[in-house]
Design a protein around this nucleic acid. Structure first.
Length: 142
DNA sequence: GCCAACGTTGGC
DNA sequence: GCCAACGTTGGC
C-alpha cells in the first residue's frame, strides 16, 4: 500500500464536504497538471492519502482511501486528464498544520514542504507515520 | 494583495 | 529544441 496527499482549497472542496460524501466518495476532478495526474495514475485501490487544506487552514485534516483507479476526468475537455475517486476515512484529532510539518525535521524532505505547488503528491511511509503521530491517529488504522 | 516558484506555451 | 513570456498556485 502506498500513501499520497491531496490538496484542496476548502472554499472549493473542504474536508467537511469530503466527510459528508461518506462511503460513496468523490471523484478528484479538476487536476490539470501532469505530475499530479501521473501520481493519480500510479495509485491503486486501497492506497491511503492525507487530505490537506491549502490557502485557508493550511493543515492536514484527515485521511482518505482510494476507492476507484484513475479514469478520464469528466470535467475535462481533453481526455488526457484523469481523476481517481477517494473516500474519507478518519479526521485527525489534531490537524497537522504546514507550520508544524515544516518544524519537524523528520518531514524536511516531504513534498508538501519542498514543492508547495504540487496538488497531488506521494507521501513516504515514514512521513505518513509522523503525520499520524502528530495528528493523533494510529498509522496502521488511519 | 503581493510575489516567488514553477509549469506551460509558443516563437524562433 | 531552446528559452522568454506568461499564467497559476499557494504561502505569507
Amino acid at each position: 500500500m502506498r500513501y499520497w496527499l491531496f490538496k484542496s482549497e476548502p472554499d472549493a472542496w473542504s474536508w467537511d464536504d469530503q466527510l459528508a460524501r461518506g462511503a460513496a466518495g468523490e471523484p478528484w476532478t479538476g487536476v490539470r497538471n501532469y505530475q499530479a495526474r501521473n501520481n493519480m495514475r500510479a495509485m491503486a485501490v486501497g492506497d491511503r492519502g492525507l487530505f490537506y487544506h491549502s490557502n485557508l487552514g493550511k493543515a492536514v485534516m484527515g485521511t482518505v482511501e482510494v476507492i476507484a483507479p484513475a479514469a478520464p476526468d469528466p470535467t475535462a475537455d481533453d481526455p488526457k486528464w484523469d481523476c481517481v475517486t477517494i473516500r474519507a476515512r478518519l479526521p485527525l484529532p489534531r490537524p497537522v498544520t504546514l507550520e508544524a510539518a515544516k518544524a519537524d525535521p523528520r518531514l524536511a524532505a516531504m513534498v508538501l514542504v519542498t514543492n508547495t505547488r504540487l496538488s497531488v503528491q506521494p507521501v513516504a511511509d515514514a512521513e505518513w507515520q509522523v503525520i499520524c503521530e502528530l495528528g493523533g491517529l494510529d498509522p496502521d488504522t488511519a
